[in-house]
Design a protein around this nucleic acid. Structure first.
Length: 544
RNA sequence: GCGCCCGUAGCUCAACUGGAUAGAGCAACUGCCUUCUAAGCAGUAGGUUUCAGGUUCAAGUCCUGACGGGCGUACCA
């Protein structure tokens, strides 16, 4: 429909003498206020300058020269400061509703990103402990954006990037080693800045169960580190699975050392005069790219900072042939991003293929008070604990509910209420309610054949049909902006349109023709709700 | 100090990236269950979109400057 409108408007513009290259990008939008029609364009207002005329006059000229199909649109009128409003023909609505039923579980899929190879990198937490609430927003956002990209035609790979070497992991190993000794009653010194979580002691205990005291004379923490890594990774993956997230690949930072990628980056930087030695460290001239200071790539200890492998990793992703590489990370990491972009540009890659989704922090609120969380001390809430408390669907939903770049307040009390205060259930309830009706209809109805949808003329019915039709648009917008919350807003509106219909129009007990048409409308609604919830990774239950 | 994000109803947030009368949920108030799930519906009230300028047919949205909050500004990740 949108392209159709753009097409006829363009033709009208040419008729009234607008040059081809002066035609603006014609935007078609759905007006907020239904009395403004079903679709509107501001094309006339954009042309005030080129045509040196007032917008209403231009709009009138456009309308006069508009050549449209009566089967699709009943008319066009000029309104407000110069909008042109269109009204869909009812036949068009019924035809499209039938199409929804036919497309069924594929309704809402678009070709916006057809043929695009995308890599979404997210979570990427090092295996030093269980996933926490902070990781939760990252995980759910990344996965849902991946789903949105898939629904818009892209070929998507989900990747988890991790580092199992370096200081953090050493301290992790030492922490386990210390707990192991403690467990066997041997005196030990707990490492400074060590990991204090209970899971460390559990891993140590497992080692005691498996090996007894044989590991007491291990020369260093290696064995303990490896055990911890394996155990923690297993737990992380279990948590992700529970959240409906399945990674396609895990990328070990270490491989970038083995295949020479890291060395290549430094060599290229040096060649271009963008890396230099100072105080025993290797620096990247980020001041050339608008930063206040240069950045250390390799510390004087010989260990690289995380920026260096980050750059190599992104180069590698592009080498792997992805058209779009999305990274998801928290606001505290935002400072790396410009360096990575500068880095890959220096290496000769197209930085437009790399994009970052930054999300703001999550505050858990319970009983009206924020939880304070510090990671290293065992004072945090894990994702599993959160899901145990409020459930998986609610967890996903709450993380997606808000725009990524606003702080998220996660109210545990509200999330726990299985009822009225909880917005997740509103959607699931609408779906379950429809399924319940459909079960009853199925008992009553023989095979009625093709429904006569044109009997759906009640305001609530028409409003609901229109809402259903705009589902693909909602998917497109959410995907294009990488903002799942837009889809939630849409689904809420849809559920609301349905409940209005539900209260205004009975299904069971009406005459056959009406019952059949209305039950098909309900079926289409359930379908769209289910498709939407699928994109969000949330269940659409048949009963509640 | 500098950089990024944010400031919208009592609270938590939307607003299709510049469009028409700024919308939802929670909280408050008024109605509605012998009829398909009341986990619901209909309605009332609640706003100088932090403030001051600017850009234009049009600004919550863009630019400048204040004020307030978050994050960053490491040879930590």
């Amino acid at each position: 429909m949108e392209t159709y409108l753009q097409d006829i408007i363009t033709k009208a513009l040419l008729k009234i003498g607008v040059e081809k290259d002066q035609i603006p990008q014609i935007k078609i939008e759905t007006p907020r206020d239904p009395s403004h029609g079903d679709a509107a364009t501001n094309a006339a207002m954009l042309l005030t300058k080129t045509l040196r005329n007032n917008p209403r006059k231009i709009a009138e000229q456009i309308v006069e020269n508009l050549d449209f199909d009566q089967d699709k649109i009943t008319g066009a009128e000029v309104a407000g400061p110069g909008f042109i409003n269109f009204r869909f023909a009812e036949n068009y609505l019924y035809k499209e509703l039938a199409a929804i039923l036919k497309k069924s579980e594929n309704f809402g899929r678009t070709d916006d990103n057809e043929g695009k190879k995308c890599l979404v990198e997210f979570v990427s937490a090092n295996p030093t402990g269980p996933l926490t609430v902070g990781h939760g927003r990252n995980a759910v956002l990344g996965d849902t954006v991946a789903r949105l990209l898939e629904w818009t035609g892209a070929d998507v790979q989900r990747e988890y990037y991790f580092n199992n070497a370096g200081r953090q992991m050493r301290i992790l190993g030492q922490s386990v080693q210390a707990r192991y000794k403690e467990h066997l009653g041997v005196e030990s010194e707990f490492p400074e800045g060590g990991y204090e979580g209970a899971y460390i002691a559990e891993i140590a205990k497992e080692l005691v169960d498996e090996h007894g005291d044989k590991l007491l004379d291990e020369p260093d923490e290696t064995v303990f580190k490896e055990k911890a890594e394996a155990a923690i990774f297993e737990e992380i993956q279990a948590t992700l699975r529970r959240m409906n997230i399945e990674m396609d690949s895990f990328f070990n930072e270490h491989s970038l050392y083995e295949d020479g990628s890291i060395q290549n980056v430094i060599a290229t930087f040096r060649e271009k005069g963008l890396a230099y030695d100072n105080d025993g460290a290797v620096w990247f001239k980020t001041t050339n790219f608008g930063k206040d200071q240069d950045t250390v790539l390799v510390k004087s200890s010989g260990e690289p900072t995380y920026r260096l492998p980050d750059i190599a990793y992104h180069a590698k992703k592009l080498d792997r042939g992805f058209d779009l590489c999305l990274d998801v990370f928290g606001a505290d990491h935002i400072d790396t991003y410009p360096d990575v972009m500068s880095g890959i540009e220096v290496l000769g890659y197209d930085k437009n293929k790399v994009e970052v989704i930054v999300y703001q922090f999550v505050t858990l609120v319970k009983d009206g008070k924020p939880y304070k969380m510090s990671t290293r001390k065992a004072n945090y809430v894990t994702l599993d604990e959160l899901m145990n408390e409020v459930g998986e669907d609610v967890t996903r939903f709450f993380f997606l509910m808000r725009s990524p770049n606003t702080h998220l307040e996660f109210d545990v009390n509200q999330a726990k209420e299985a009822g009225e205060k909880n917005p997740v259930f509103y959607l699931q309830y609408a779906h379950a309610r429809i399924q319940s009706i459909l079960r009853k209809v199925d008992e009553l109805e023989e095979d009625e054949g093709t429904p006569e949808l044109s009997v759906l003329t009640h305001d609530s019915e028409v409003a609901l049909i229109k809402k259903l039709l705009s589902f693909p648009e909602a998917v497109t917008l959410a995907a294009a902006h990488r903002e799942p919350h837009r889809l939630i807003t849409y689904l809420n509106e849809l559920a609301s349109a349905f409940t209005s219909f539900y209260h205004d129009c009975r299904i069971i007990g009406e005459e056959k023709l009406i019952m059949h048409a209305r039950s098909e409308l309900a079926r289409a609604t359930a379908r769209v709700l289910a498709n939407g919830l699928t994109i969000l990774g949330i269940n659409a239950p048949d009963r509640m």
